Computed example of a mutant assay.
Amino acid sequence: MHSKLDEVETGESQSTGIQSVEIGMAILDAFVESSSAMSLKQVSLATNMAPSKVHRYLASFVRSGMLVQVATNGLYDLGPKARRLGLAAMGRLDAFSVATNGLLKLRDLTGHTVCMTVWGQGGPIMVRWESGREPLIVNLRIGSSIPLLDTSIGHTFLAHLPKSITQPALALQQQLAGAETERKFPSDEELERIRANRSIYTMSALIEGVDAIAAPVFEGPDRLFSVITLAAPHRSLKGSQLGRIRQQVEAIAREVSAELGYREA
């Protein structure tokens, strides 16, 4: 005789899932998206569920430790078990692999060359380079140091790292380059504009005729993890193509950042 219990163990049951678990996750997602504790009414509105239905889930989550209810005002917030779960997930996360997967996705999506840089003692360091359908002839390799000035990569780091970190690296780069005149550091207004735009586009910065679009990747609450960059011949980044590809670079950077635990304000 076929019973409901038997169905639980079948592949068909597994494919349909458990609706109550999915509803519960939607409620927890509301707390993840919120910047503060929430009332029953707020959770109800955020999830588009009846307050009576939401209340039953909230009570179960409080008992399990996923949520807590503040005694003074009755608001609900993420609890100790939710924090432990989040810390465990972040501890098992391979940030470099996540960022690399995003980089490869960007290459496959656009067909252009992409690279990833991280911050080193002397400034941005190239850690990954993936050629597109039209390989670029460049004098760059894994481990190469990227100039902070005049490059989209460098300006992205300047915009998202404190000057206490970037200024010594900039001084070291200028010393090694033996520049007779000190290059101008971008103004605060320029750096703020870069932060607001979420990406930066430069023409022929490192290679004549090759343009670049760079975007920041964040890890955790607000730490800059890396910069992903798309490089292509100038003819490929003109007019509407530039706008479309720039949006794709920014979208991948946001996607990777979200996977690494970053939440935009």
Rank of each mutant, 00 (worst) to 15 (best):
Ser3Asp: 07
Lys4Met: 11
Lys4Asp: 09
Leu5Pro: 00
Asp6Phe: 10
Gly11Pro: 05
Glu12Arg: 15
Ser13Ala: 15
Ser15Ala: 13
Gly17Gln: 12
Ser20Met: 13
Glu22Val: 08
Ile23Glu: 12
Ile23Phe: 06
Ile23Gln: 12
Gly24Val: 14
Met25Thr: 12
Ala26Ile: 04
Leu28Phe: 01
Ser34Arg: 11
Met38Phe: 06
Leu40His: 15
Val43Trp: 02
Val43Phe: 03
Val43Arg: 05
Ser44Cys: 10
Asn48Arg: 04
Ser60Tyr: 00
Ser60Thr: 02
Val62Pro: 06
Ser64Asn: 15
Ser64Ala: 15
Leu67Gln: 00
Gln69Arg: 15
Thr72Leu: 09
Pro80Met: 06
Ala82Tyr: 09
Arg83Val: 10
Arg83Met: 09
Arg84Ala: 03
Leu85Asp: 09
Ala95Asn: 13
Val98Asp: 00
Thr100Ile: 07
Asn101Glu: 13
Leu103Phe: 03
Leu104Trp: 13
Leu106Glu: 03
Arg107Val: 02
Arg107Asp: 02
Val118Ser: 04
Gly122Lys: 06
Met126Ile: 06
Ser131Phe: 03
Ser131Glu: 15
Pro135Phe: 03
Val138Lys: 14
Leu140Asp: 12
Gly143Phe: 06
Ser144Glu: 08
Leu149Glu: 07
Leu149Ala: 09
Thr151Val: 06
Ile153Met: 06
Gly154Cys: 02
Leu158Asn: 10
Leu158Cys: 10
Leu161Tyr: 08
Pro162Tyr: 04
Pro162Ser: 07
Ser164Val: 10
Ala171Val: 07
Ala171Cys: 03
Gln174Gly: 09
Leu176Arg: 15
Ala177Val: 01
Ala177Arg: 13
Ala179Phe: 08
Glu180Val: 13
Thr181Val: 14
Pro186Arg: 14
Glu190Tyr: 03
Arg193Gln: 14
Arg195Thr: 11
Ala196Thr: 15
Ile200Asn: 03
Ser204Ile: 05
Leu206Phe: 07
Leu206His: 05
Ile207Asn: 05
Glu208Arg: 13
Val210Ile: 15
Val210Arg: 00
Asp211Tyr: 01
Ala214Gly: 04
Val217Cys: 07
Leu224Thr: 06
Leu224Ala: 04
Phe225Cys: 08
Ser226Tyr: 05
Thr229Ile: 02
Pro233Asn: 10
Leu237Gly: 11
Leu237Asp: 06
Lys238His: 12
Gln241Thr: 10
Gln248Met: 11
Val249Trp: 00
Ile252Thr: 14
Ala253Gln: 13
Glu259Asn: 10
Leu260Trp: 01
